[in-house]
Structure formats: structure tokens, C-alpha cells
Amino acid sequence: MAVVTQVLRSEWTKIKSVRSTVWTLGIAVVVTVALGALISALSKRDFDNLSPKDKIQFDPTFISFAGMGLGQLALIVFGVLVVSNEYSTGMIRTSLAAVPQRGTFLFSKITIATLLAFVVGMLTSFVAFFVGQAMLGSHKAHLGDPGVLRAVIGGGLYMTAITVFSMGVATMLRSPMLSLGILMPFFFLISAILGNVPATRKVGQYLPDQAGQKVMQVVTFGDDAPYGPWGGFAIMVLWVVAALIGGYALLRRRDA
């Protein structure tokens, strides 16, 4: 039986020895922070023109996370590539010959990538928050305000969870193109549409990203979601767990 610490070290070597890791994570940080800063700056200029209702719902913390919708796509690419590169390159056969215990192999890989995504996600979330608040000037929120620290930590957790979810899906689908072809439009378009069209809203708010983003919000006036910030995140975690179980079940059964 392969020793878990050996496999973890091996997966760490794997993840840091390919360029896509640096590229995808780097883009996630830059896009999230830069777009958040831009939208924060625009929101500040536009604040006086807002209706009273919008002023009440104005959530400076969540606005500084506005870049996450795009930045998460880079994390999805990271998560997908970590897993599906094994398949698209044929490395999977070499890997499974070295570590035939497939559960050990898969969960070591996912653990390493998750830790990395967690560090990058937290960093991104905090940087995006501080940069965004600096742009918002007088309308800014403070880390000590009620719910703000939770939302910023939540931003890091959200980014981590979306990465792990992508890894689970990629384990099931194997092909990077197929995985990205499903995940990217889903999180960039479909989920947002389902979540905003009144008829599908009831369903849409249980999708992983819609539910998970709840934890990043501070101001929730006029929000009809039947769950709180951590309730929403728990729903997302359930999605993640389901994707991982699905991935593991298929990996165990399948021929490599």
C-alpha cells in the first residue's frame, strides 16, 4: 500500500512542476482583484445616482468581490486541468501504476490542489476586499463591521469550493474540453440566468455558486433566499461532496 505522505509529496511535485498551475492561479488573482477594484471605483462614482432602495442594498464588501464571477473561471480551469491533464496526456496510467490505490491517488491529488486553492483563494479574497474598499473611499466597509470578516473569509472559501467542485466534475468526465465546456458556461451564464429569471429562481438559488455566494454578502435586504450565509455555503459543500463521491466511484470502477 502506498503511503499517503509519499503520494501527497508526489502530487505536490506534480502540481508545482507544470506551468498551467501558475498561469491559472495567477489569472484568478489578477482578474478577481483588478475587476473588483474597477467595479468598486465605478460604484463609488455612481453611488449618488442610486435609488434609495439601491442605497439601502448597497453592499461594499460584495461589490469588491465583483471580479470573482470572472476570476472563478480561472480557478475552474485550474481544478479541471489538475485532474484531466492526467487523462489527456496519458499520465494517468503511469500514475495509477505507481499508486494503484485509486482512492489514495485521487484524494491526495485533490488535497494538494485544494490546499493550494485555499491559500490563493483567501489571499485573493482579502486583497480584493482591501483594494476594493480603498476604491470605494467614503462608502467603504471595515473588516470589523458586522459580518464583513465572515464575508471575506467566505470569499476565500467560495473560491476553494468552486475549485474542488471542478476537480470532482473533471474526475467524472476525464476530458478537459468536455469538463470546461460544461463548467464554464454553467457558472458564467446558465447559473446566473436561472438565478435571476423569476420562474427558475427557486431552483437557481440552490445551484452551487448561487448558494455559495451567500456567504460573501453582508447586506441582505430584500433577499428572499431561504438560507443564511453558512446555510448557503453548506449547500455548496453538498454539491462539492457529491461531485467528489461521483468522481471517486467512477475512478474506482473504470479502466484507466
Binding site: 502506498a2 509519499q6 503520494v7 509529496r9 508526489s10 502530487e11 511535485t13 506534480k14 512542476s17 507544470v18 506551468r19 498551467s20 491533464n85 492526467e86 496526456t89 496519458g90 499520465m91 494517468i92 496510467r93 503511469t94 500514475s95 501504476a97 505507481a98 499508486v99
Partner: peptide, 23 residues
């Protein structure tokens, strides 16, 4: 099994290193 059963973006040394570490 197959000469191409490796990640092309990884150096020869790192390819062997990750295999070595796992065992």
C-alpha cells in the same frame, strides 16, 4: 506501457521525481 504516458509540460527530472516520491 506507452512512451507518451506522461505530462509533456513537465521536465524529465520532475516526471521521474513525482514517480519516485510516490513510492
Amino acid at each position: 506501457l506507452d512512451a507518451k504516458a506522461m505530462h509533456g509540460g513537465r521536465s524529465a527530472f520532475n516526471h521521474l521525481l513525482c514517480l519516485a516520491q510516490s513510492n
